[in-house]
Amino acid sequence: MPDSQATFNRPVRPAMLRGWRRRCPKCGSGPLLSGYLKVRATCPVCDEELHHHRADDGPAYLTILIVGHILAPLILIIYTQYRPEPMVLASSFSVGCVALSLYLLPRLKGAIVGLQWAKRMHGFGKTVNV
């Protein structure tokens, strides 16, 4: 890159944690999402452009991965230790699966947008805001 567009380090961890909290990865105070999963075009506080993100299926994949790794062993443990009725087991774990998925999905999307911002991926690094 030319010297006029020197890159400054963007710390990954704080950007991902800000995204996890559904805040702008740059300033940490502006809201990242305008709806449940809709990313704002720009941050209303610092005017950082956020429309470059390409989270696509990443948050859904990670949500399925995490929920599956938490609930599958838990189902096995609960079933072998307590032997609940099949309908009780199915209904309680269905509710748990949906609740955990709805909790994780927007947070993981924010973390992925924060990672992309920190790594200057998909257009986040075209200009340097000093």
Rank of each mutant, 00 (worst) to 15 (best):
V95L: 01
A90E: 03
V98C: 13
P84Y: 05
V98N: 12
Y103R: 03
A99R: 06
M87D: 14
I77W: 10
L76I: 14
L74D: 00
I78N: 09
F93C: 03
M87I: 09
Y103N: 08
Y79R: 15
I77P: 04
L76C: 15
A99V: 12
L108W: 07
Y82R: 09
A90G: 04
S94D: 08
S101D: 14
S92H: 13
M87R: 05
M87S: 09
S101K: 08
V95Q: 01
R107H: 04
Y103E: 05
V95I: 06
L100C: 11
K109H: 11
R107E: 03
A99D: 08
L76A: 15
V88T: 12
V95S: 01
L89K: 01
Y82S: 08
G96C: 07
A72C: 14
I75L: 14
I77R: 03
C97H: 02
P73I: 08
R83V: 00
K109M: 03
S91W: 00
S92R: 07
Y79N: 15
E85N: 03
V88D: 11
A90P: 02
L89T: 05
E85P: 00
L108N: 04
L74S: 02
I77Y: 13
V98Q: 10
A99S: 14
S92T: 11
L100P: 07
K109I: 06
P73S: 02
A99C: 11
Y103C: 08
Y79G: 15
S91R: 03
P86M: 03
Y82E: 11
P106T: 07
P73W: 01
Y103D: 12
L105M: 05
E85K: 01
C97K: 05
S101E: 10
L105G: 03
T80G: 06
L108R: 08
V95E: 01
P86R: 02
M87A: 09
F93V: 12
S94V: 03
R107A: 00
L89H: 00
M87C: 06
Q81Y: 10
Q81N: 14
I75Y: 13
L74Y: 00
G96K: 02
Y79W: 14
K109Q: 10
F93T: 08
T80F: 13
R107V: 01
K109S: 09
A72I: 14
A99M: 13
P84K: 10
S91P: 07
V88I: 11
L104Q: 07
Y79F: 15
V88K: 05
A72D: 11
P73R: 00
S101T: 13
T80Q: 10
Y103P: 12
T80I: 03
R83A: 01
C97T: 06
F93R: 13
C97D: 10
L74P: 04
K109R: 12
P86L: 04
A90C: 06
P86H: 03
L74K: 04
M87W: 10
L105D: 04
T80K: 09
Y103Q: 09
R107Q: 01
K109F: 07
L108Q: 07
